[in-house]
Structure formats: structure tokens, C-alpha cells
Simulated scan of single mutants.
Amino acid sequence: MAHPILVLCLLAFSCILATAFESSPLQDFCVADTSTNAVHVNGLPCLDSKLTNANNFYFSGLHIAGNTSSSVGSKVSPVAIAQIPGLNTLGISLARIDYAPRGVVPPHTHPRASEILTVLKGKLYVGFVTSIPESRLISKVLQKGDVFVFPIGLPHFQQNVGNGNAASLSALTSQNPGVIIIANAVFGSHPPIAEDVLSKSFQLDKSVVSRLQTQF
């Protein structure tokens, strides 16, 4: 009896594992129908496949450098579902990032995607921080052609440490990876987080917290 019971247990366990992951697509593609107000469940509703064309799977302009005159000195140019409706349900997206000298992409997370970054131009200092209890910084200086991976959900950043402008290309494992810029989320939420909470959490005077909340 022991052997059949073991087999049944293994089968049950494999079924549990199977249901824990996203299933394979049931059709060739699901071009996003942005004209409808239907409820969104893990993506946008599908456009009738007979109405699709090459433009639903196409984007032009990623060779154009972004404007880096922002306060942080960088510009992210996404190529996600909003730019290519055909990415709907496919689980991939891209982003070009341009950096002014000393420009940064502030510490942030992608709640739904891992990211693999390739340096197109310049020199970047990049890194991510592991989860508690280590909270360890893993970082490296990258040159043109170098590649670095940021695991899903972990805070990470990039900074241009070269003499001129820099650029990179990121691929992400989600059609809609999401982004949480940590400083903006903490100090710029609506409504704001109570000053007392932030003051105790960051060991800052309330006047400093108030100023940061105004800034963000």
C-alpha cells in the first residue's frame, strides 16, 4: 500500500505546483483593446484577432535619446503595453534609459518583474539591495556592452559615473512591471503618511519630514 499512496501524494503535490504558476496562453496572442471599459483581469481585454495588424506589434523611436533635464538627470522611455498593444499577456517589455552626467535612476522596485540591463553608452554604477536580514548591497560599475540583472521586487538604482551622457536598455519580465520610486512613495503619497510615522521610521526631525513631503 505504501507505494501507491506515495505515488498519489506525489501526483497531488505536482498538481499544487502546477496551479501555482501562470498557465500557457490559450491563443496565439491577445492584442490589448484599449477602447473598452471592461474589467481588467491580469491584462487588458483582447481585440478581435481579425482586426489586428502589424502596427499592434510595432513601435518606432527607441533610437531617440530621452530628455534628461529632470531633477534626477535621467529619462526612462518605456516600451510596454501602452506602446505595443500586442504585448498584452506576453509577459515582456522594454525600456530605454538616458542619463545626463551624474544623472541617476533613484532607488526603486518593480513589483511584477525582474530586469536585465545592458549598457549602450557610457559608464554606469548600478546595484540592488537584498532582503532582510542581510540587506546587502550588490553593486558594480558597468561599461558599454556590460549586462546586469535586478531580481524581481528588490530595490535597485543606476547612476551615470562617466564623463559624458550614458544610455542603457532594460528588458523586463512583465508587460506591466510597475515601478515604485521609494522616495516618492514614502514622502509623496496621497494622502501623506503621518509625519510621526516617518519621523520615527527614518529617525528624522518632523520639520525635515515636512520639507521632504513638500518636495516630493
Rank of each mutant, 00 (worst) to 15 (best):
I84R: 03
I97S: 10
A167R: 10
K50G: 03
G145I: 05
N163H: 12
C30F: 02
F57E: 05
I92P: 04
A194L: 11
S114F: 11
V141R: 09
Q143L: 13
A65C: 01
V209K: 02
K200E: 13
A80W: 08
F57V: 08
S70F: 03
A171Y: 05
V186P: 06
G73Q: 09
S70I: 06
V7A: 13
V119T: 07
A171T: 15
F59C: 09
L94F: 15
V209W: 06
V147H: 04
A54C: 04
A65E: 13
L44D: 12
V72P: 09
V76M: 03
A113Y: 06
A38E: 14
L204V: 04
P78S: 01
H190I: 13
P45H: 01
P111N: 04
P101R: 08
L169K: 01
L94Q: 06
S77P: 01
T118W: 01
S199I: 00
K121M: 09
N165F: 13
A113S: 14
V105L: 15
S170M: 09
V129N: 02
E115G: 07
S14D: 09
T173H: 04
H3D: 15
N176H: 07
R136H: 11
G122K: 08
A32C: 11
S201T: 15
K50N: 14
I132F: 14
L90W: 02
V161G: 07
L90V: 08
I138A: 08
S14M: 13
L17Y: 07
